[in-house]
Design a protein around this nucleic acid. Sequence first.
RNA 1: GGGGGCGUGGUGUAGCGGCUAACAUGCGGCCCUGUCAAGGCCGAGAUCGCGGGUUCGAACCCCGUCGCUCCCGCCA
Length: 439
Amino acid sequence: MERTMIAELSQCIDQTVKISGWLQVLRDQKSMQFLILRDRTGLVQVAHWKKGNPELAELISTLGTESALTVTGKVVENPSVKLGGLEIQLETLAVENAAEAPLPFELTGDVLPNVDFRMDWRYLDLRRPEPLLVFKVQTTLEKAAREFWLQNGFMEIHSPKIMGTPSESGAELFELKYFDGKAYLAQSPQFYKQMGMAAGFDRVFEIGPVFRADPSFTSRHMTEFTGLDFEMAWINDHHDVMDMIERWLQYIYQAVKDEHGEAIKELLGVDLVVPSLPFPRIPMLEAIQIVKEMGYDLPEGKTKDLDPGGERTIAQHVKEKFNHDFVFVTDWPITARPFYHMRKPEDPSLTRSFDLLANGLEICTGAQREHRRAMLERQALEMGLTTEPIAYYLDFFRYGCPPHGGMGMGLSRLLMVLLGLPNIREAVYLFRGPNRLNP
RNA sequence: GGGGGCGUGGUGUAGCGGCUAACAUGCGGCCCUGUCAAGGCCGAGAUCGCGGGUUCGAACCCCGUCGCUCCCGCCA
């Protein structure tokens, strides 16, 4: 017999079906047993008259919750059953894998253990409907992201994660042994995306792992995460990149809302709002003024960009003034940006760059890149870099590289914002941080 | 790297100088004509993170240490 998913049972009234899932609750009474079974699609009640099969009844009595079971039985309508008005009258039951009792924690309890404990037992934690929904949403999100990119002329690339030379600053790089020498884990596909521009691919994207050796202990940092990156050629300036991002995000939000809007509201209490276009864009200097006028004191030394408190303040301003959850903070000073961001021709102390804040959280950084080799080299030297380690990168710009720009976004940060999750650990399958390497 | 908060049965909490350390939930047993957040009764389960100190007396105060967590720095 084929397995039936629980969500489809209402179409199987009076049929005998096979259901596989986990025993969420067992109500073991004098004459009857009720088993609440859960699969990826929902819950169903299975009823068993003990008299009909005393041997089976005895077996059921020994079952621990969360045991993996396969049952067969007839689906019957029963209005008095609060769970969907139907139940399965048990015929056979196979214990595929009994669960030890007690469980490390109660999956359906009113209160949850702290995040760290749940990370130790992540596979049990993931059985709960909320985490399950997070990853259903992630799947839809990635599908929509790809769809949009493919519809808009982007090609998917997969760049190497093992690198021979530290790119960019090198400060947050994981070093590893590589045969007799050493190598580094990529902390961004940045240079390789840009190589795609030099290669004439026009538009590329990558969804892949990114490694940061940052000893950061916050609710929004990880040492390994999935980056959503794209790069596009023949642009006029960074506004072309922002135009693309906001259309792309709108498309993603719409897809997630269509597919999961109701479940998100029900389980997470979030009413997903598809963002309107265009997103507000505020130059950094203006943002600093606004934040000051709102009475927020930037910390000493923060005269050229915003700290997280400032970011939350500007987000609040945007929410009040434009009723928008997103804001691009643009035209960052060169001191706060890497050497490859293009400078503004009319003010070389500023860059053609932006960060995207979503509900005050930084989820994305982008810019037009400097594609003129001489200029790029000069900027690298100015920022105190030596050109030798980036020689390969600089070479990309020797034989006809078009003007281009792009962005990088953290997948889990986007999920956090989308679903209103308080901690990035809830938005990632398995968390990696300075003190977390297992499971 | 800097700072704050928290470590008490499996889990979540209460207790904050003088108790046999309390409650909820889970777990085990018994009872219950169909339960459905099931219910009722009984029971097991904690040397209060670890080490030192103060005190007649420490889960409680002090110091150290470890773990977790959040904020800042940095970033996605």
